[in-house]
Design a protein around this nucleic acid. Sequence first.
RNA 1: GGCCCCAUCAUCUAGCGGUCCAGGAUACUGGGUUUUCAUCCCAGACACGCGGGUUCGAUUCCCGCUGGGGUCACCA
Length: 435
Amino acid sequence: MSVKSKIRVRIAPSPTGFVHVGNVYGALFNYAFARKNNGTFILRIDDTDQKRHVEGAEEVLYSGFEWLGIRWDEGPDKGGQYGPYKPSEKIDKYQKIAHDLVNQGLAYEEDGAIKLKSPKKDFSWNDAIRGEITFPETEVKDFVILKSDGFPVYHFNSVVDDIEMEITHVIRGEEHISNTPRQIALFEALKASPPVFAHFPTLRNSEHKKLSKRRDPVDLRLYREAGYLPEALVNFLCLLGWSHPEEKEIFSINEFIDKFSLERVRKAGPIFDSKKLDWINGMYIRQLTDDEFIRHLKTHLSSDTNDEFLGKITPLIKERINKLADAEDLLKFFWEKPQVEKPLFENEQSTLHIASALETLRKVPGWSLEEINSSLKKAIEEKGFKTGDFYMTMRLVLAGKKVTPPINESMEILGKEETLSRLETAERVMTFSPR
RNA sequence: GGCCCCAUCAUCUAGCGGUCCAGGAUACUGGGUUUUCAUCCCAGACACGCGGGUUCGAUUCCCGCUGGGGUCACCA
């Protein structure tokens, strides 16, 4: 057994008021790396930008990650031996360290701020994902570490915190590659050995650009509201820049942890393709038990619905939606009478279909699915209708659209009275509306 | 523009010198099942950016080019 110090990784989102999918992506890699290696996963909320302070932002962060099932071992909410986990609570510490640097001649004051003197040398490190990376010395110039308002600049508090929290691996997006030389300079000025750096690729939009807050759907809540299941979103994100060793597409976060390694992380920036997300989500929806499905569905329907109704429609729509929010459109006609207009029924036979359905259904003694099925089947045969045409008319009459759940099942759920009523309305429209 | 990173189907990817006239998945197209749609099943089309090397042999290694991306703040 080696006596290597325990692996400690962290994510350091800033409290912007929403969880960025890119942050989730990075959290996943850190989380998996920590769990896989029996290490510690830390949440640090980078809140040094007082100007950008957003009310309730911390809660948004906690609830977002809780929804996803990603848990940290140390953090502002959890506590830990290395706190505080919010830089804003240790400003005096950064100030002291910055002044120490000045006293040592490694930094100096300018316009009320403190700047680190650039060590005139090349900077290179062995990136755990990308290998050797080198920046020429001309790239690292003197830079501000403590602003004139006394607050540390990101690079500074980040490095100080990483040192104090004994972070062993900094796993973050490639947009930080060019920040790394300056941070290494800081680690060295503070007489600490830099952690292992690993830069994973940045998620791109369909234009191949970094996901942008302005034009791309990056807010985690959007996905939750649209009816994506957290397991599906996580699964999808795992497949970007990383692939399962056995080329599996559907797997749990625990399996991800089990199979994870930085070596399998690709360097090229993947595109966030929601089509594939939809497919994965559909797979997860279909894997849900009916009870689970109902529980999720309830939060995505506008109408008050009872469990009996939900129990009946579940098998009708579970295979027909990819996102929970899609259910609403498919089910709306149950609680909302369709707009029935004559132009909808271009089929010559429509009038006959409706009359025949009315005649047949009125005579059905009970209202079981079997009775509806068999009586309608008999009527279709007797009248010589084309089955597909007949049922298309039923769809249009009862739901007002061509795409619906199975229509006989829908009639059963709608009830005899409502079904007949909608058929009668249609008959009236067909008879009296001018052509 | 300087610096840095990257480069296999439309997209996510497998591939770590011969096993690849390149495999899987999504999307797409066609077909089957089916009262619509969907699910499911089957089939099909689609890629190693270009040019030099190295090698008996390059998708795989090296260099250049091209292309894409990121970053250049008293933002994080």
